[in-house]
């Protein structure tokens, strides 16, 4: 099949700058009363699936916290489906939005309350291991960084995952695998290293 070729250039990216919290998480930036921070809540009572927290820190190449970061996540629901088109223009939020946005705090720490996603089909027709897509912006980041979070307790699925297997240096695959900590709500912990020995694998998807 023939494809059209692009006739316009994508608008160049520019850094989100040090004040990205004003525009993307205004209430976190103490600018209240205009609208709620988008993506603050992903769950409703009706959401099916295992409740989990995803927590981590964004750390720069000098080991310092990236306090002005914004982190967005996008994921499938527990059945491996993304939020459905039926609710597209509906006022009633789907029971699970699949999308979250959080500001990093002064220590570079972020936290999402979500559910563990199901497997999504990969380009090879086989299921990808359960994963969450991440996108990170901050001062000093010239184009939003795309990466993924995988789950340490899905070792077998991770072993066969299409994307993880594209990372030739196997040691670097570990930079995407969150460890599980038990608690009333289990936590998956993953730090994002922008640079340095433990630099996270970032993707140009």
């Amino acid at each position: 099949m023939l494809h059209p070729t692009p006739i316009l250039k994508e608008t160049p990216s520019q850094t989100a700058g040090p004040y990205v919290h004003i525009g993307m998480t205004p209430n976190f930036a103490e600018l209240r009363g205009v609208y709620d921070d988008p993506g603050a809540t992903m769950l409703s009572e009706d959401t099916k699936g295992e409740r989990i927290a995803i927590v981590g820190r964004v750390i720069d190449g000098a080991g310092a916290p990236v306090a002005d970061a914004v982190i967005e996540i996008w994921q499938a629901d527990a059945q491996g489906s993304f939020a459905g088109p039926a609710a597209r223009h509906s006022n009633s939020a789907p029971s699970f939005t699949g999308w979250g946005r959080q500001a990093a705090d002064g220590d570079g720490v972020f936290s999402f309350q979500t559910i563990k996603p199901g497997a999504v089909e990969g380009p090879d027709g086989r299921p990808q291991a359960p994963h969450v897509s991440l996108w990170i912006v901050a001062r000093g980041i010239n184009i939003g960084l795309q990466t993924r979070l995988y789950f340490a307790d899905e070792a077998a699925a991770n072993e066969g995952d299409y994307v993880l297997n594209k990372i030739m240096d196997k040691r670097r695959r570990q930079t995407l695998i969150a460890r599980r900590e038990e608690g009333p709500v289990p936590r998956y912990v993953l730090d994002i290293h922008l640079q340095g020995e433990k630099e996270t694998v970032f993707f140009d998807f």
């Binding site: 000098a62 640079q195 993707f203």
Partner: peptide, 11 residues
């Protein structure tokens, strides 16, 4: 200190 030093993995 914020620029990744590895190339992005193109997929």
């Amino acid at each position: 200190f914020r620029a990744p030093r590895h190339s992005m993995l193109s997929l």
